[in-house]
């Protein structure tokens, strides 16, 4: 990751928030999707060096994170049985 110092930490914190909130989604398909998309898009942009571009991406991520946080909460309010591919216990 070419981003250095403050922006690198910022990006990693943002990534952590995405992973944390996505993995709390109750619905299997939505959870897997948002985890996959978070991984893909942070990796796809890992060579971005232009500081303006980085801050643009970060502010876009901030908005998406808001959606993710709210929807993660909602998905835990209305839940359904686990799918046949989902283990009932994590371990």
């Amino acid at each position: 990751m070419p981003a250095t110092g403050a922006s690198k930490t910022q990006i990693l914190h943002m990534y952590k928030e995405f992973i944390r909130n996505a993995s709390k989604i109750q619905n299997y398909n939505f959870r897997e999707y948002f985890l996959r998309r978070a991984r893909e898009s942070f990796r796809a942009n890992k060579n971005v060096e232009n500081p303006e571009k980085i801050s643009e991406l970060l502010s876009e991520a901030e908005k998406d994170l808001g959606v993710l946080k709210r929807q993660s909460v909602i998905s835990n309010m209305y839940t359904f049985d686990k799918l046949v591919v989902e283990p009932l216990k994590k371990r």
Binding site: M1, K8, L12, Y15, K16, I19, R20, S23, R39, F42, R43, K46
Partner: peptide
């Protein structure tokens, strides 16, 4: 692990 992987592992 790279920095993104490490974040994910810690989560």
């Amino acid at each position: 692990l790279d920095s993104l992987d490490t974040v994910e592992l810690l989560v």
